[in-house]
Amino acid sequence: MDITRAALEAGIASFEATHGGVPDSFQPLIRHAPGAFAGYGLMRASLMRGQEDGGALDLKTKELIFALLDVLVGQTRGAKAHAANAIRLGLTLPELAEGLVQCLMVGGITVWNLTGREVMEHCEAIVAERG
């Protein structure tokens, strides 16, 4: 198997393990720029290892960091997905709120208004559904 195919498979497996599947936004990249997805996939597969597999940070923390970085750059869809993954991994709403306040402090109230509030409300709904 060539290295690009192996990297593609590693990236897909990484998304499946941590997100339940490859997000739709990556499908055109897989179809039309498989080498680019392969590179991204290798980086992601290496980063998104749990501590039991040699990762330094636990997956909950990595998902929270991704959520907060996405909030800062206005990537609402990604922020909601990563925050939801973090909640499923045990992140609490107060922990998420503290992180979102850090984003507000760094990026200003606009960061909250454009993305932070939606992320918080999305995760509130997830927690409420659990009961």
Rank of each mutant, 00 (worst) to 15 (best):
V106I: 06
R44L: 07
A79W: 08
T115C: 14
N85E: 15
R49N: 09
R5T: 13
G54H: 00
T92P: 05
E118D: 14
A56P: 01
K62C: 07
I126A: 03
T115Y: 09
I3K: 14
A83G: 13
I65M: 09
G78I: 09
Q75E: 14
L42T: 02
V73C: 12
L47D: 08
A33C: 04
V22G: 02
L42G: 01
F66A: 15
R49K: 14
T4E: 13
L104H: 04
V22H: 03
R77F: 05
I12R: 10
R5N: 11
K60I: 03
I3N: 13
V101I: 15
V73N: 08
K62D: 05
V22E: 04
G41Y: 03
V106R: 03
L59C: 11
H82G: 03
A13D: 07
L114D: 13
Q51A: 13
F15V: 01
E121Y: 09
A10V: 03
I126C: 04
G99F: 03
G99A: 04
V111E: 06
D24V: 15
I12Q: 10
V22N: 02
G11E: 00
D53P: 02
R117G: 08
V101P: 01
L89F: 09
A10T: 02
A38Q: 06
S14Y: 04
S14D: 10
V127D: 01
E63Y: 12
S25C: 10
I3L: 13
L96G: 08
G131M: 06
A79N: 08
A36E: 07
I30Q: 02
M120H: 11
M105V: 00
E129R: 14
M120G: 01
I12N: 08
S14C: 14
R77W: 06
L104E: 03
G50P: 05
E98Q: 10
E9K: 05
A33P: 00
